[in-house]
Amino acid sequence: MSTRTVLHEADIARALTRISHEILESNKGPENLVLLGIPTRGVTLANRIAALVEEFAGAPVPVGALDVTMYRDDLHRNPTRAPQPTAIPPGGIDGRVVVLVDDVLYSGRSIRAALDALQDIGRPTAVRLATLVDRGHRELPIRPDFVGKNLPSSADERVNVRLTETDGREEVTIES
């Protein structure tokens, strides 16, 4: 098995800065935004993006976590981690622009599950998707609005996102 690093710490920081600017531009400012990270690393990325948006726009953006574990359609085939808490910011998501944040977009099934979970929580004005890595191989018609890095990969490769807060180091690698 070989591993190669495709994003280093500075690359990740640059990608998140660009995503933050694109979110602000697309939304015409920070008003009515809510960022919801998909555990585990999506929550970390959502918090980082929120900090950057606040730095650039001068206004805080609510951040929460949206666990999609029990909404997945592949639980019977793929053992998954224990459910994490869902934390919706005060004020909820009704009438807000929700940006879902995830680390890697692959088949689109996690995002489909997130959309189902959102329906149980409220009715946002719009839902956008930000992902650090888009590796292709979609099984569902889901496309990110904000992407850090498009990373074409084969189905037998594994993309690993490691962040300081959860893994003690900062990188994106591909294992083949």
Rank of each mutant, 00 (worst) to 15 (best):
V97C: 06
A114L: 02
E157H: 02
G37F: 05
V43I: 12
D67M: 03
D120H: 01
P124N: 13
L100H: 06
T86H: 04
P62W: 05
F146W: 04
H8N: 15
M1A: 14
S176W: 08
T17M: 09
G148Q: 07
V127F: 13
I121M: 14
L36Q: 07
I93G: 04
G95K: 06
A10Q: 15
L66E: 14
A117F: 04
T69V: 08
T173H: 13
L115V: 12
S153V: 15
A13R: 10
L118P: 01
I12S: 14
H137P: 00
D167G: 07
I23D: 08
T17L: 13
R96A: 09
T125P: 01
D11C: 11
Y71V: 01
E54I: 08
R158M: 14
V61A: 00
F146Y: 13
F56H: 06
L163M: 09
P90N: 09
S154W: 15
A57H: 13
L16K: 03
T69S: 08
R14G: 15
V161F: 07
R81V: 10
R128Q: 15
I93K: 07
A114T: 02
R48T: 06
S107Y: 03
D94Y: 04
N160F: 11
P83H: 07
S107L: 01
S107A: 10
R48S: 11
I142T: 06
V172D: 13
A46H: 02
L129V: 14
A51M: 01
P60L: 05
I88F: 00
R96N: 03
L105G: 03
R123Q: 11
R128S: 10
V104D: 06
A10I: 13
V98T: 09
R72S: 12
R109F: 02
R123M: 06
S26I: 10
R81P: 06
N47H: 12
V68A: 02
I93N: 05
T131E: 09
V127P: 11
I12E: 13
V98H: 08
V97D: 13
I142G: 09
F56N: 04
L16Y: 04
P144A: 12
P30D: 12
R143K: 11
L45M: 06
S110H: 07
E54W: 00
L36P: 07
E25N: 03
A155K: 03
E165C: 00
L115E: 09
T125C: 08
V97K: 02
R48M: 09
I174C: 07
E165S: 06
P30S: 15
I121K: 12
T44F: 08
H76W: 14
V147K: 05
A46C: 01
P141E: 14
R48Y: 07
H21K: 08
S110L: 11
I88D: 09
V147Q: 05
I142K: 02
R128T: 04
L132E: 05
N78Q: 09
H8C: 10
R169Q: 14
M1V: 12
A130Y: 12
L7M: 15
R4N: 14
G122V: 03
L105D: 02
G148D: 03
V147A: 09
S26N: 09
V6R: 04
E22K: 00
T86Q: 09
